[in-house]
């Protein structure tokens, strides 16, 4: 279900939350932000998609953080276990938790934004701010690419099943399916983009000159004030963080 907020308000909210969480650098806050984003995603009806996408990004990242900092953290003093040069230290684990939760929070809020924003509203809002339409088109295409690819994959899978391909639930079977479907998917998308480019050109998309927008996106004053407040807050958080780090960084 698309968000009812003005797309620039939700974009600012997501961006500022990510900046403030990063600047604060406190894992309880990061965890709280990540959880809040998950709850909002579930309430917006996109919980499953947001969590699946977040898992795809965060699981490999979390594992690599654990491997890197959990096992090899030179500043670590409290050794919990050791195998030769690899030492599990409390400080290493804390650092992995800190950076993992911070990245997790950022990924969650940005995913929440991208899964709830109305792509046409965002394109109209960006065009209204004078951004090149090509930029808006790329943003909209990126946001709608996943559903388009999913639709195409369904068609290709149906065509292959209609000719005797049996896909079972197992990982191996799925991998075989992915291998068979990727080539036609990519070739199809490339072929599509060629004919789409001709149509877009014919409809004046690449032409110079000013553009107008048919879609009007309501941007109430309260939303604009909220965006300004969020930007101020984010700037303050960054300033505070810099100020807090300065004396420590200064002498060294």
């Amino acid at each position: 279900m698309p968000s009812t907020l003005h797309p620039l308000t939700s974009l600012t909210a997501a961006g500022c939350t990510a900046v403030i969480t990063t600047a604060a650098g406190a894992w309880p806050l990061s965890l709280a932000v990540g959880l809040a984003a998950a709850v909002l995603a579930v309430r917006a009806g996109v919980g499953r998609r947001v969590l699946a996408a977040a898992a795809a990004v965060l699981l490999p990242l979390g594992l690599s953080l654990l491997m890197l900092h959990g096992l090899f953290f030179p500043e670590g003093r409290t050794v919990l276990a050791a195998w030769g040069p690899a030492r599990v230290t409390a400080e290493g684990l804390a650092f992995a938790l800190e950076s993992g939760s911070r990245t997790g929070a950022c990924v969650m809020v940005l995913l929440l934004f991208s899964f709830t924003v109305s792509a046409p509203d965002l394109v109209a809002a960006l065009a209204g701010r004078g951004l090149p339409p090509q930029f808006g088109f790329v943003v909209a295409s990126a946001l709608t690419l996943l559903p388009v690819m999913a639709g195409r994959l369904d068609n290709i899978r149906a065509a292959q099943e209609a000719r005797g391909l049996v896909l079972r639930g197992g990982v191996l079977s799925r991998l075989v399916g992915v291998r068979l479907q990727m080539v036609p998917l990519v070739l199809g998308l490339i072929e599509d983009s060629g004919s789409r480019a001709q149509a877009l050109e014919a409809r004046g998309f690449g032409g110079p000159g000013p553009r107008t927008s048919y879609r009007e996106v309501a941007d109430p004053p309260v939303g604009r004030r909220f965006r300004a407040a969020l930007l101020l807050l984010a700037a303050a958080a960054v300033a505070l963080r810099l100020a807090a780090s300065w004396p420590a960084a200064g002498p060294s």
Binding site: S118, A119, P120, V123, P133, F137, A140, S141, T144, V148, R196, A199, L200, R203, G204, F205, G207, G209, P210, R211, T212, S213, Y214, R215
Partner: peptide
């Protein structure tokens, strides 16, 4: 079709928008 317009009306307007 442009594929980035949400309604038939907006799709119709796409060519007009590009011409300002």
């Amino acid at each position: 079709l442009s594929t980035v317009r949400a309604t038939v009306a907006e799709e119709l307007a796409f060519g007009l928008e590009n011409r300002g």
